[in-house]
C-alpha cells in the first residue's frame, strides 16, 4: 500500500546495483529531499549509507574528489573549498536539509530550485562524475553530458561514486556565481555560474556558463562569444552578457515573467563574470 514497501541497506556496490535494477527502486543517501512530500513514488528504497566507499573525500592538489555519500554539510565545511561552492550549498539550503542530503541525492534532483546554485556551479565547472552502473561498470560523465543524457530521456546511470571538483594544473582559474531571489536566503529565481580558465599569458582557455531559471530546462549551458586565445583584458563583459538572450527561452511563472528572467540572466552572467575577473586580477 504505502511506499516504500521494502527498505534495503546494501553493503556492497554490486548488491546496490542489483537492487537498483528494478524500475520502482530509488537510491537514497540521506534522502531528506528525495523523501520530501507525502507520497513517495517508489516501492523500493535502497539506502546507500552502508557503502563506505562512497564516504571518502580526497583533497588533492587540483581540488577535491568527493564520495557520493558525503553530505552537503560536509562538503560545505571542507577547508579550501571554493567560496562559490560553499555559497551555493549554504545560502538557501538550511543546515538540517544539508545534513540529510548527500552528494548522490543532490545529483538526482537537477530541477530542485533549492539546489540550483549548486547545480549551476557544478555545470559551469563541468565537474566529472563517476558512477557504478547497474551492470557493474564504472563510467564517468561531465555534468554537461549528464544533463544531455537526462534531456534525452536517459535514466540515472547508477550509483554516484564520486565527483571531482578539480581545476587543472598550469592555469589560472576563476569561478563566479550570482543569483536573484526575493530575500537573502530564498531559493533563486534566476542564477548563473561562470567558470573561467586562463593560460599563463592570461588568454582565455575555457569559459563556461550555466544559467538556471531562464529556460524550460532546469539548467542551461550557454556559450559566450569569446575568440580563442583572446586576452582577458580584451574581454568586454557587457558584450558577452548581451549575447545571452538569443540562447535563452525563459518561461514565465508566478514568481517572474519570461522577460524578467531573460533580463536577469544577463545581469547574473555579467556579475558572475565580474566576480571571475576579480579573482584573476
Amino acid at each position: 500500500m504505502t511506499n516504500p514497501k521494502t527498505y534495503h541497506r546494501p553493503t556492497t556496490l554490486p548488491e546496490a546495483a542489483q537492487l537498483l535494477m528494478r524500475a520502482d527502486a530509488v537510491a537514497i543517501s540521506g534522502g531528506a529531499l528525495l523523501l520530501s512530500g507525502i507520497d513517495l513514488p517508489y516501492a523500493q528504497v535502497i539506502d546507500l549509507q552502508a557503502l563506505t566507499e562512497l564516504r571518502g573525500i580526497d583533497h588533492v592538489e587540483t581540488g577535491f574528489r568527493i564520495g557520493g555519500g558525503v553530505t552537503l554539510s560536509e562538503i560545505a565545511a571542507l577547508p579550501g573549498l571554493h567560496p562559490v561552492f560553499r555559497r551555493a550549498l549554504t545560502r538557501c539550503i538550511p543546515l538540517n536539509i544539508r545534513n540529510g542530503t548527500s552528494l548522490h541525492d543532490s545529483l538526482m534532483l537537477p530541477d530542485s530550485a533549492m539546489l540550483a546554485e549548486w547545480w549551476a556551479a557544478l555545470a559551469a565547472l563541468d565537474a566529472q562524475t563517476h558512477w557504478y552502473t547497474y551492470n557493474n561498470q564504472r563510467v564517468s560523465f561531465g555534468i554537461g553530458e549528464l544533463l544531455s543524457h537526462w534531456e534525452e530521456g536517459g535514466g540515472t546511470p547508477g550509483v554516484l561514486m564520486q565527483i571531482d571538483l578539480m581545476m587543472a594544473k598550469g592555469y589560472r582559474h576563476a569561478l563566479g556565481a550570482t543569483y536573484v531571489a526575493r530575500t537573502p536566503a530564498d531559493e533563486p529565481i534566476v542564477n548563473a555560474a561562470i567558470y573561467l580558465r586562463l593560460d599563463a599569458e592570461s588568454t582565455i582557455d575555457q569559459l563556461f556558463a550555466a544559467v538556471c531559471g531562464a529556460s524550460s530546462a532546469p539548467i542551461t549551458l550557454v556559450t559566450l562569444p569569446v575568440d580563442p586565445f583572446q586576452h582577458i583584458s580584451k574581454v568586454d563583459l557587457s558584450t558577452l552578457a548581451a549575447s545571452l538572450p538569443a540562447q535563452l527561452e525563459p518561461v514565465g511563472d508566478w514568481r517572474a515573467s519570461a522577460d524578467y528572467r531573460r533580463e536577469m540572466a544577463v545581469v547574473c552572467v555579467r556579475r558572475a563574470l565580474e566576480e571571475c575577473m576579480e579573482q584573476v586580477g
Binding site: 534522502g31 529531499l33 512530500g37 549509507q49 554539510s73 538550511p94 538540517n96 545534513n99 540529510g100
Partner: peptide, 29 residues
C-alpha cells in the same frame, strides 16, 4: 510540514540536526 522545511521535526542523529519527517525510521537503524 512534509518537506522538513519548518524544522519542527528536528532530531540529532549522531550529533547532527536532521529532519525526522523526511527520514524513514529504518534509516536510523
Amino acid at each position: 510540514d512534509e518537506h522538513g522545511l519548518t524544522g519542527a521535526d528536528t532530531v540529532l542523529m549522531d550529533g547532527k540536526p536532521v529532519n525526522s519527517g523526511v527520514m524513514l525510521a529504518a534509516q536510523a537503524d
